[in-house]
Every structure is written in structure tokens, then in C-alpha cells.
Computed example of a mutant assay.
Amino acid sequence: MRRWNGILAAGAALVLAGCAVSPSSEGSFNQSGAVTGAEALFPVARRSDELHRNNGSTGQMMGVGVCPRERDLTDWQPLLNPSLNAFPPSPKPEYTRAPRDFGRAFNTSAYRVLLTQDMGRARADIDALRAHAERNSWVPPVQSNAAASAVIEGLGSVLPAWQILRQTAVATAEDRALIDGWLQRASEYTDTHPGENNGGTFRGANDMLWGAMSGDRARFQKGIDQGFMRQLRDMRPDGSFPLETDRGVKALENSSRNVALMVYSAEIGLSQGVDLYATEVDGKSLHDAVSFLVRAADDNALVDVYAKGDRNPSPGTPPFRPNAQVSPYGNPSRGWVKLYTDRFPGTELSEALLARIELPSRITADTVGGTVTCYAGDV
């Protein structure tokens, strides 16, 4: 077994040494044929080739303007040990941000690999996941909804990162067997989460992606049914989500998070030939949720009728008051707005969104799989 404490030194060397680049994606991503679901979410090898290609006018790689820069990276080394030990022995495991924090940093590193084809970085990243697999981290022996929520957040960032890394030239069959087995166990641990609000939408997106990556069509379909479709079924005719819009002054912010996860689910679905954007339940679609968000952000009275319930406010959140909604167009929303407006250019809803939020050239959000501009932006 590989020892996780050797990973710290390897990662430190990467930070100091910079990027050793393979000449082409044919060499760097030559394991795409060895995995199931190589194009789940996006075609990894082909995308890397597009990003890594030389831009004749600048002499730089085509993807440097849309993918993470060195200064955008967060070193995952200090976050590794807390993540490995996220759930110490306890009668009831508690929520922790350790999986989320490690996952976010790890995800950005993987997208850097997608651009640079730095196999040294890829190997260090893979070893960090092996360390989790060898310890069976994130899989407490006791079931807990709070712990499951933390695992859902961690998987949201780790799964798309592993989709990249498992196709690199330095990923071995042993790596894939070990890490895949761990991800399966972690996914199964989240199965008992009630999944009623955006936490369930997040789990659904994870199940869709992992189902596509592993070839588990039942899990893929479960993700659709218990994530995306459940939200459509529960959504009011006006496009609002009952378990998001009663959250006081953060009703629209929480609604935007749910929309983000549904957009992400729809993108995963399209990569597998399933069009969730066009799916309706009782005449309700994802577009209705987007429309409500835009209208209610302009006129808070539309959501205040629900938000006054002020259910379960986040720590430090002020009490509900009319016409005081936190904007749903904060930085995390840029990811789903980018995906949605690219998918539906020129529509009334897309134009309304783009009039209300500025989209930078690089966008990273864990609700949509990480650096969306790197995997879906034009180059």
C-alpha cells in the first residue's frame, strides 16, 4: 500500500518545480480507452488537446485564458490530513467542511492538469485519492445525515477531478480499481440522505456523474429521479422551490444554488444523450425555475410571501424583512449562468441573466463541477 505521508513531499516538489508538460494529449491522456464513461460531462482527452494546443498568435496554450492559473490553485496538502480524518470515531458523525475544502482545492489542481498535461501533478493528485481509498475516508461506520451532507459536498468536487485524472497516462489499473471502489462506497454512504432540498439535488448530480463514469445505469437513473426530477415534481407552478424559498433573506440565494445543481445535472445528462433541459413535469421545467429567480430578484415581493417563514436561517443571517433578499447573482451563480446562457444563446431568459451578472473569463463553482470555463468555455 502507498503511504499517504509520502504525498506531502511529492506535492511540495510540484509547487516548487512548476509544470512538466507532455507534448500532446495522445501521450498524456492515453488511458481514455481503458475507462467506462470517458466522455461523461465532457470529452476529457479531446478537451485537453483543445486547451493544450499552441495559440499561434500568442505562443501560449489555447486554454490559458479559461483554465486555472498557478496563482488560482489552492495547495491541497494542508487540507489532506483533515480530509483523511474527516469523521473520527463517534456514536453519530457530525458535519464537517473537511471533504468540501479538500475537494475544492483538489478539483482545481485536476483542471490545471487538463490544461498543462503535467503528469507529475497528476501523479501526486492520484496518490492523494489513493490515500483516501486506503483509509476508506469519508465512509463512517455509523450512518448520519449530517455526515452524508459533508460527503455529498466532497464528492461534488472529487468526481469531476477523478474523471480527468483517471484518464491520464500515469493512472494505473490498480489506481482505478482502488479509487473506484472507494468512490462507490462513499456514494453508497450518501444514499440514505433524505434528499429533499438542494442537498438532494447535489447528491443526484453526483449519482448521475458517478453512474456515467462507472457504467452503473441504475445509479445514473437514480440520480435523475431523486435529484432533478424530484425538484421538478416539488416545484410550484410559479417556478419556486418550497424548501428553498422559505429560507428568509437567503431564499433566492438558496434557490440559485438549487438551479445551479439542476443545470449541472442537465449538462451531465446531455453528455449521456438525456435532455433534462427539455424535460417537464406537469408543465414545469427548469426554465420556469430560472424565470422565477430572475423575476423575484427584480421584485422581492414574489418570494417574500414564502421567505417570511424564515425557516432554518444560516448562522449570522439577519432575520427576515421584506424586500431584503440576498442577491442570487453572487459569485457561485456565475457557473450555472455561464452554462445556461451558452446552451440557450439569445433567448429572453439568457439575455435577462447576462444583463444582471457579469461573466469573467475564468469561472469556478463546485455546484457545477469546478472550472466550467475550462471544460465548457470557448477556446
Rank of each mutant, 00 (worst) to 15 (best):
G204L: 03
G227D: 10
A146F: 14
R130E: 11
Y111D: 08
R311N: 08
S187L: 15
S28Q: 01
R71C: 00
S361K: 07
T96I: 13
T192I: 09
V263M: 09
K338D: 13
L8G: 08
R100T: 06
T371I: 08
V368P: 01
R47I: 09
T74P: 00
R46F: 06
R112F: 01
A9P: 00
I224W: 03
T367N: 06
S28G: 15
N258I: 00
I224C: 11
V170Y: 02
A278L: 10
T74W: 04
R321T: 10
L349D: 12
K222Q: 15
M208E: 11
I268S: 07
V249G: 04
W76G: 00
N81T: 12
W182D: 05
G120R: 11
T317K: 05
A355Q: 14
G199C: 03
Y189R: 09
R135G: 03
S57R: 11
K250L: 12
R53S: 14
Q272A: 13
E26Q: 14
T364M: 00
A34T: 04
T74A: 12
F292V: 07
E174S: 15
D75W: 06
T373E: 11
D298P: 01
S314N: 12
G18V: 05
F292E: 05
C374E: 01
R69C: 00
A98G: 10
I268P: 02
Q77T: 13
I224V: 15
A34F: 03
N197S: 13
P82H: 05
P88L: 04
A296M: 10
A355W: 06
N331T: 12
I7E: 09
S24C: 09
N85R: 10
V303E: 06
S25H: 03
K222P: 05
E39F: 02
L14V: 06
D216L: 03
M62K: 06
R69P: 00
R203T: 07
G56D: 12
S285I: 03
S187Q: 13
Q231R: 12
D298I: 02
A177L: 14
A376L: 03
R311S: 07
I357F: 10
P93A: 10
P43K: 08
D125A: 13
Q325D: 12
T341N: 09
P360M: 10
D49C: 06
R321K: 14
K338N: 13
D246H: 11
G346L: 12
D298Y: 03
R185G: 12
T373A: 11
G18M: 07
S255G: 12
Q117I: 00
G269C: 07
W182R: 02
D282T: 02
E188R: 14
G27V: 12
A9F: 02
E174Q: 15
S48Y: 04
V259W: 09
Y95M: 12
Q325I: 08
D75I: 04
D72H: 11
N312V: 07
P43A: 15
R233S: 10
R130L: 13
A133V: 04
A205H: 03
N107V: 02
E26Y: 06
D288F: 01
K92R: 14
R233C: 02
A110S: 15
P328R: 04
D310C: 08
D225F: 09
W162D: 00
G330Y: 07
A169R: 08
S137A: 15
G37D: 11
T74Q: 11
A9E: 04
V263D: 07
S28L: 05
D191G: 02
